[in-house]
Amino acid sequence: MNSEAPVVDIRALAALARVDVSDAEVAKLETEIPSILKFVETIQKADISGVTNDTSLRNVMRADEDPHESGIYTEVLLKAAPTREGNRIAVKQVITRKNN
């Protein structure tokens, strides 16, 4: 991408991001996103040859241990859910027959 502008397919990105976009918004983003990318392109000039992969930032995850007693937060969390069935969150069908 150093010399040529990146290909920005807004519809494909919106699909990846799981957000529906209107034709008008696609047209707007087709000018805005490349202009933001042009602005951030300056980092290509930085000399990163001395930087190792071992950066000072690392991902931190909670240890998967010592679970709380089952069910004690069920009601308070389900109260926030848009649709529930019993003690479960109800969702729409995930796999459909006519796949597109």
């Binding site: 957000v19 529906d20 969150i89 969702v91």
Partner: peptide
């Protein structure tokens, strides 16, 4: 994403729920 909390747009399948809710 319209599943666990917040706004949830009505749609026939889960992918459309995500897309419509977030839009």
């Amino acid at each position: 994403d319209g599943i666990r909390y917040g706004l949830s747009a009505a749609a026939d399948d889960i992918k459309s729920v995500y897309g419509k809710t977030r839009a």
